[in-house]
Simulated assay, not measured.
Amino acid sequence: MNVESKTVSVVIAAYNGSSFIHELLNSVINQSFRPIEIIVADDRSTDQTVEIVKSIAAVSSVPLEIKVNDANLGFRDNFLNAALLAKGDFIAFCDQDDIWDLKKLERVAAFCQKPNISMIVHAASSLDQSTGKLVKFTQGIRSTGVKPPLSYDPWLTFFGFSIVFRRELLHLADIQGRFRDFIVPNEKIAHDRWIVFLGQVVGETAELNLPLVTYRQHATNLFGDGRRSHKARGHDPIRELDDYISATADMIEVIRDLPDETEVTFPLFDRGKAIHFFQRALHQLRQRKQVYVSRSRPRGVWAVIRNIRGGVYRSVHQDAIRWRSIARDLKYCATRS
């Protein structure tokens, strides 16, 4: 199996992106390793996005299809529904306002021939539009290499623009039936969190410590680059834990229901090991909740001590102590009477 035997489709979810999409498409079309197709799913834009994409498609050296949704889907479903149309062996999510390094797909393709790779992720450069400042955004990637299944925190995600994944991941479970997002609980889990969850369960992840996309920071970003807190003032920590508990329990059910053929497509998938991994994470969340439902400061502190002794604050993927979680739980206890 060689690099040339693997193909890549690029999927772009667009909505009122006329200010940036021309530059983005040029950086995708001119890749040194050409994608076999570019699919732009427009979510009922009210600006000139569709017209700009059509004008570029008319002269593009890469097949470029634009699909205008019948109704506004939101970026989560827009990305995933568009990805179902892709024909490539691998699919690259692409945001409408980014700029790709011209060798992004060439760098990624070096890992596509490895049979156990389920997804490839990379670092980025974060560009603040207001200041022009460019900062490397590592996403925690320290070096280029391959990680085995279940190497990440159960709730970790990589930003969608940095993910290239095997198309088969889309067909492991019904995307319309996916569980609630633990970050935005009133929505189904986001496209990137869904793919990272499935990808790390069934196969290896290739990490590239290279900034292969310039990620713009501007006023209309839906999410930042991870360096800023998005917690609302006065957020409810018990409700937040409940959201994580609910999502994690649902993750376990998704793993239980993965089809038997998963082991054939992804030989490294170990259903029992994966279920145990997420069950440990669920147990930790439920034990941490006991701190927050304690009726007094002493009871809360004692719950923290029990959790420390019971290994609740040790991450399930690295067995490292979560000092921030301990500090957060103790801080909450300090507010109790």
Results as ranks from 00 to 15, higher is better:
residue 8 V to W: 08
residue 19 S to I: 13
residue 23 E to H: 09
residue 23 E to F: 01
residue 29 I to S: 04
residue 30 N to A: 02
residue 33 F to Q: 02
residue 33 F to H: 07
residue 39 I to C: 02
residue 47 D to V: 14
residue 54 K to F: 04
residue 56 I to Q: 10
residue 58 A to C: 06
residue 62 V to C: 11
residue 71 A to G: 01
residue 77 D to C: 07
residue 81 N to Q: 12
residue 82 A to C: 00
residue 83 A to G: 03
residue 85 L to H: 08
residue 88 G to S: 04
residue 89 D to W: 09
residue 90 F to A: 03
residue 95 D to L: 06
residue 100 W to S: 04
residue 104 K to W: 12
residue 106 E to C: 07
residue 118 S to G: 04
residue 123 A to E: 10
residue 126 S to M: 05
residue 131 T to K: 08
residue 133 K to T: 08
residue 137 F to R: 11
residue 145 G to P: 06
residue 152 Y to W: 15
residue 161 F to H: 09
residue 162 S to Q: 10
residue 179 F to L: 13
residue 180 R to L: 05
residue 185 P to H: 11
residue 188 K to Y: 06
residue 194 W to K: 10
residue 207 E to I: 05
residue 210 L to R: 10
residue 218 H to I: 05
residue 219 A to D: 08
residue 224 G to L: 12
residue 227 R to K: 08
residue 230 H to W: 11
residue 234 G to R: 06
residue 243 D to T: 07
residue 244 Y to M: 12
residue 249 A to R: 15
residue 254 V to G: 01
residue 257 D to K: 14
residue 258 L to G: 00
residue 264 V to Q: 00
residue 266 F to S: 03
residue 268 L to V: 01
residue 286 R to F: 05
residue 291 V to W: 10
residue 292 Y to N: 10
residue 304 V to G: 03
residue 325 S to E: 15
residue 327 A to D: 11
